[in-house]
């Protein structure tokens, strides 16, 4: 009973149910084989493809914890990838690790700057987060286009390709990066006062300020972390196909990220947040995509299928709905 009451029980149950339904259509769905010393399998695919979403959702969790929201992450994904690819494309030797590292650093610095801009608009200027980040969401794709001159930039750089397609100790590099960033953020947040202060600012910014918390700085940090996470995700997305597409990279990822955060049990009103929940939410969304492909749900119905899964999940997660449902059942038995 305690397990069922746990905040993450329903998302995890839904994730397991989805994975099991795949097993029904693809019997070796769970098999993980080692090929050339690398891990291969559908589950590994889900982790690898889910890494960018996981990172974006992680940053989104912190911003939502401050009772904000960041709609610009998709644009940041595009800008970061565009910046890195454009830099690498200009190198004399695209295989040079040093040059690639500079490009990556530049892309992440640019992302951090964009995050600081968002944070500045929200906390210093006092614009509502949804409006403040909408500016960059709309304009950001234009920025990405300007960086790449409106073209898809192709790179042929083995070091850059490693970010999304490489392996370390047999594990895909993007999975390691995502796990590392999640662990880092989780440790900083839960082992220092930062997480508590974040929750406090999100719960009641005014009271927090009166209690002596510098909420402005905290909010800016949250947006910067969010943008840097999106920046790393942008590197992954562009690295996976060795090209940057300013128009399509990270398109609508902000909505997937918000959905992942909400599925994970974080309140959009701010305050309480769950990093583990976000990770599960992101995996759930990615599994949903994979399920559509492997089961072969026709594209016309795919969105409906996803919507139904999410609605069911939201309903069973809602205490009010469960209470009603639980009350009705005995009544039906007596009738």
């Amino acid at each position: 009973m305690n397990v069922v009451r746990h905040r993450l029980f329903w998302p995890v149950a839904m994730l397991v149910a989805l994975l099991l339904s795949n097993l029904f259509f693809t019997p070796d769905f769970f098999s993980i084989e080692v090929r050339d010393g690398h891990l291969f399998g559908s589950l590994i695919d889900i982790l690898r493809q889910g890494a960018p979403l996981m990172l974006v959702a992680l940053g989104m969790t912190l911003v939502i914890a401050t009772s904000g929201i960041d709609l610009s992450v998709g644009a940041v994904v595009a800008i970061s990838g565009a910046m890195a690819c454009q830099q690498i494309a200009g190198l004399d030797d695209q295989g040079a690790v040093g040059g690639v590292l500079v490009a990556v650093a530049l892309a992440l610095a640019l992302s951090a700057g964009l995050g600081a801009w968002n944070g500045f608009l929200v906390s210093v200027v006092g614009i509502q987060p949804i409006i403040a980040t909408l500016i960059l969401m709309v304009a950001g794709r234009g920025v990405a286009q300007v960086i790449t001159d409106g073209q898809i930039v192709n790179v042929n750089s083995p070091p850059y390709k490693t970010i999304a397609a490489g392996f370390l100790f047999g594990i895909p590099v993007p999975v390691i990066i995502a796990a590392g960033v999640v662990a880092l953020v989780a440790v900083v947040i839960r082992r220092s006062a930062f997480g508590m202060l974040l929750e406090s600012v999100g719960g009641n910014a005014g009271a927090s300020r009166l209690a002596g918390i510098r909420s402005r700085r905290l909010i800016i940090i949250a947006y910067v972390v969010c943008a840097v996470c999106a920046g790393v995700a942008g590197l992954m997305v562009s690295s996976t196909v060795s090209s940057a597409d300013g128009n399509n990279n990270g398109l609508l990822i902000e909505l997937d990220a918000i959905l992942a955060v909400v599925i994970g049990g974080t309140s959009l009103l701010g305050g309480r947040f769950s990093i583990a929940g976000t990770v599960i939410g992101a995996l759930l969304i990615k599994t949903l995509d994979t399920t559509v492909y492997t089961i072969g749900i026709p594209p016309e119905v795919a969105l409906l299928f996803k919507a139904v899964v999410v609605v069911i999940l939201c309903l069973v997660q809602s205490p009010a709905f469960r209470a009603k449902f639980a009350r009705r059942q005995p009544a039906e038995v007596t009738a």
Partner: peptide, 17 residues
């Protein structure tokens, strides 16, 4: 969706299934 990223992702799932 006519894009490389999505094409790769979907093909990966096809290859597994």
């Amino acid at each position: 969706d006519f894009t490389r990223v999505k094409g790769k992702e979907v093909m990966e799932a096809f290859l597994r299934a």
